[in-house]
């Protein structure tokens, strides 16, 4: 029996060593690889300066075109909208701007029904997980938002195993082979094409009474003297409970309501996402009503 236990323990030790080695190797590859995800692209922008930085969900990612802003206003713009982002994710990205020393003279935060949503974006999570130990902000993000925090933080290779469909050996090989993705194109803008038929959308009826994350964002903005502007991107006209946005307007400071700014259904890919034509249209509206207007005022 003793021999058996010793043998099994040796295999267990070997397993841990392999896990350590794999974790180390995978992390090194992700840290040093050319960006293949949007978050890696974000990391690669350390110490850079931008005039405008847009934060939010896919409604930012698919709706704001930095190249048009640059063309029309000369303002260097970064679109840091991440798919399925909630306020937790926005708060983390906001803090990471400082952590990575990515300077944005003006920060635009898209806010809508996500005000009421808890949790975080799983898509962004798998993109961030290789860097969990890179800084306090990321570590805290997982501590507050992930049930798997213990495993992610303390068990070697667990983070890659749990996200194996995204962060697997295939991805490592592609990173080593420097296979490009479109993550670095368009300063973070990702277009959507086509128009789906179902344009129905139902917003919540009431605002959440207490929102700790939103309060933290406001405090952070005030504390760090960030020039932040909130806005709501366009929704399709068939939306229900649109009065929710009016309630949001009372709660959120420095808020621009563009929820009804686009009336043509053909400019929407679905009820809450603009397609590429819609993004061009809306970016121009945004330039005219916010960026140029404020520049003149300044």
């Amino acid at each position: 029996m003793k021999k058996f236990i010793v043998t099994i323990l040796s295999y267990l030790m070997a397993t841990f060593l392999i896990m350590f080695a794999l974790d180390f190797g995978y992390t090194k590859v992700y840290e040093n690889a050319k960006p293949r995800t949007k978050f890696q692209y974000f990391r690669s922008l350390k110490n850079k300066q931008f005039d405008c930085v847009f934060l939010g969900s896919s409604r930012v990612e698919n709706g704001i075109i930095p190249t048009i802003i640059k063309e029309k206003t000369g303002l260097e713009t970064l679109n840091m909208g991440f798919q399925a982002s909630k306020l937790n994710d926005i708060y983390t990205i906001l803090q990471l701007l400082k952590e990575y020393n990515i300077q944005g003279k003006r920060i635009f935060i898209q806010i809508d029904y996500i005000y009421n949503l808890k949790g975080n974006s799983k898509i962004l999570q798998y993109q961030m997980i290789p860097f969990i130990n890179e800084n306090e902000v990321l570590n805290k993000h997982f501590k507050n938002n992930s049930e798997d925090y213990f495993g992610y933080n303390y068990v070697p290779f667990y983070r890659y195993s749990r996200n194996d469909l995204k962060l697997n050996f295939r991805e490592i090989l592609l990173s080593i082979a420097k296979k490009k993705t479109n993550a670095m194109e368009g300063n973070g803008y990702a277009p959507k094409y086509g128009t789906s038929k179902n344009h129905r959308l139902t917003l919540p009826t009431e605002l959440e009474k207490e929102n700790v994350v939103f309060d933290s964002i406001i405090k952070y903005i005030e504390k760090n003297k960030i020039n932040a502007t909130f806005y709501c991107a366009p929704f399709c006209y068939h939306g229900k409970n649109m009065e929710f946005i009016a309630k949001l307007k009372n709660k959120v400071p420095n808020f621009y309501d563009f929820s009804r700014a686009v009336s043509d259904e053909k400019l929407f890919q679905n009820s809450n996402h603009l397609n590429h034509d819609g993004a061009i249209y809306f970016t121009n509206i945004f330039i005219d009503q916010v960026l140029l207007k404020n520049n003149i005022e300044e």
């Binding site: 392999i18 794999l22 290779f157 469909l165 697997n168 050996f169």
Partner: peptide
């Protein structure tokens, strides 16, 4: 063989 299988399970296994 045991070490090779463990490594393969860790690398190619579906744990998600």
């Amino acid at each position: 063989k045991v070490i090779a299988i463990i490594t393969m399970i860790l690398i190619f296994g579906v744990f998600s």
